[in-house]
Design a protein around this nucleic acid. Sequence first.
RNA 1: GGGAGCUUAGCUCAGCUGGUUUAGAGCAUCUGCCUUACAAGCAGAGGGUCGGGGGUUCGAACCCCUCAGCUCCCACCA
Length: 884
Amino acid sequence: MSTLASVYSPAAIEEKWYAYWMRHGLFHSEPDEREPYAVVIPPPNVTGVLHMGHMLNNTIQDVLVRRARMLGKNACWVPGTDHASIATEAKVVEKLAAEGVKKTDLSREDFLRHAWEWTRRHGGIILEQLKRLGASCDWERTSFTMDEGYSRSVIRAFVDLYRQGKIYRGVRMINWDPQAQTALSDEEVIYREQQGKLYYVRYRVSGAAAEGQPAYVVVATTRPETIFGDTAVCINPGDERYRWLRGKKLLVPLINREVPVIEDEYVDPEFGTGCLKVTPAHDVNDYLLGEKYGLEVIDIFNDDGTLSPKAQRYVGQDRFEVRRQVEEELAAEGLLEKVEAYANKVGFSERTNAAIEPKLSMQWFVRMEELAAPALAAVMDDDVQLFPPKFKNTYRHWMEHIKDWCISRQLWWGHRIPAWYLPQGGLVVAETAEQALAAAREKTGNPQLALADLRQDEDCLDTWFSSWLWPISVFDPDVAGHPEADPNKDLQYYYPTTDLVTAPEILFFWVARMIVAGYEWAGGYPFKNVYLTGIVRDKQGRKMSKSLGNSPDPVALMEKYGADSVRLGMLLTSPAGNDLPFDESLCEQGRNFCNKIWNAFRLISSWEPGDGEPQPEHAQVAVEWFGELLRKALQSVADDFDKYRLSEALMALYKLYWDEFSGWYLEIIKPQQGRPMDAATYKATLRFFDAMLRLLHPFMPFITEELWQNLAERKDGESIMVAPQPSAREHDEDVLRRFEQAKQVVSAIRSLRKDRGIPSREPLTLLYRGELSPAAAAVAGRLANVQQVAAVEENTEPMCASFLVGTTELYVPLGSLANAEEERKKLAAEVERLTAFLGGVKAKLDNEKFVRSAPEAIVALERKKQRDAEAKIAALTEQLEKLK
RNA sequence: GGGAGCUUAGCUCAGCUGGUUUAGAGCAUCUGCCUUACAAGCAGAGGGUCGGGGGUUCGAACCCCUCAGCUCCCACCA
């Protein structure tokens, strides 16, 4: 008997094998003559920590990568991190604030020193956590978006696009995050329905009221604090109610600034009062109106969301506080007609969750329309395939309506925009300060110009402007933005990568833009397949979040259950694109499966092959059957993987291992107490076990490595990681069918024992009329304690239990164990059920139209059902008679 | 306001071009078992008018219409 404990304990084993894989360089990949298979990790924030979303995402990647490696491909999974401009800068600012230091008191250089220090301290923790999970990344290729080479490629990409005229600088209405104090792209704004108020505010008519005309108009607004920035009131030219207002001036409440009444079709007479206040500096539509009618633009906010001196009132106070006070003041002044509850959509910063302020400012933009064209075609033509394919629509819609991308951020942590402003105005864009100086001298015709005369743009680039180069620059940092460069060996070999696994939330942020960059600089798409995962939710279906505190700590989970178990827990129920309702019990299920595997190994390793021991018939049957079953499983698993149905592949293997291999196969071949095992069965069993470990390895790398190493003598450096997957072959359905009959016979006998309280140690005899394969007889002998099996012409034994498997009648003589009344009841119930079934079949066949229009095969099938049912009923009725 | 998708057992989901199924799986539940690999286990069992209604068809979970509910994406309605 094996000395292994009966419970699998993962901790030491996981650590041992991860170190072994690292020591032998098994994760590392170099270009060679094999088919490449590459995956680039969606780089997590450099200072982030592992959450359940990462767990799901990286488990899936590891499964795909490990399988590809075992299929003989040269698999390369590139890990790395993202500098995450806003998020990281926010953390550093917060940390400094806690120490009493304000960012504004620091120089750019000092701040960056702190940021790097923070990055060094917290950076890469997440990568260490991924190792716990078993991630088979090529750590020698770990990249960071602010590595020197990588940064070079980002800057070069900017310069290249600028030279092509695809990057421009201009004043536009952008999304301002008052907390991070930076511009955001449209994609970084999340709109949420907010229960707000609609304020009806009176604007008095300037000058004396004309005879019979009102002294004021009422304007509806959700943002009364912006009235200080009003520069017009707009009505619809067709609106008869306001005809009298034409050409009049109105007074902005509280500050009594005189503003014109303008007319534009944009105003919906149905909404509110049909009268719109126009604040060009703080609303996108108002801005457009302002442009059209040459209105003054009064920006009443400071960058932090407090009111600026331009507002005249409430200067220095926060916008939301001002809203409250303005409401009070308007009411006190009798200028507030009414307030209604009103639900509207408010934009929030994706990173800081601060309410976005539309703000007019000078920013850098990428002209997207032309760039997007090949990237749109790539997905539409399936050069890049999305899984699940429903995302194709979403993708198309976005790409067809793509807007210019605001890429400048008023931050310090990131890639500084390589633009230098000249003393006399104008600017030059260049990769380095030296090149900028040269360009500046040339442009100005002043060779005396010094670097000190130039002022570099203060802003950083959007993080996504660096991560869109990820699949290119992690391999070769000198290709992006450098059209004349020859790609290095790595890029030539690994690009395009094969699979990308990521969340649908960043389809536009990242996936689409990577495809754009791929066509722009690397000659084509960056990956062939995109697997979009779901969102990990809690049991109640809520998104996991820090604030809800409903997200388990993945590392704690792995400590409790083992990494393999948690991986299983993540995959057992998460088809592509579906959300994963996570519950710890899924890890328990994973752990139970590990334990099952572990114990099967204990059993097998307790066996000794005997010399000259003959192979029993039941063992031979089992070996033949399981071999075929394995082949069939191989095929279906390969098929599942082709379609990225990982959960289904895993479930198939789970059942194959648990039910078929452990439940049936091992139980059949298990030698009688103390007996040795015959060599043929022993060898076959080791072969099967080995094959199953390989099949399972991508899903559960640690336990499979441990057992595989113990299954045979292995050389140092050998690993299941690089053992080939078993190859698929045709299987023989007949063998499977015969065994299916055996299983049914065994189940039926077990069931009848249970029904009648016949203990399993009580041997039984099995009589049958019809076809019973020798396989079935042998298996029944082994698993159902059937001592005798005999064919009969007719059953002469009245006191017996009878049942049907297919059309074969089986009888188990019970003698004194039987209760005639009970047996009659059982038989009668069965006859009744069959008769009802037969009724349905007959009704179908009696329908002329069915017989005429249905395909022949279908009709023939129904006829066979009828014949079989009739035969069964006849047999059971006959038996019933005997019992009377 | 547009668009996409979903609704099958208590839960999470399969069910590919309508007929080989008398609708499946895993988990959960119930019953019996400490049977010498595993009680984190074994054996057995129960559980669904396939969201409602209508239609097409010899035949519908699957196709069409309609109603209801849910989810996601996009959009500048104060």
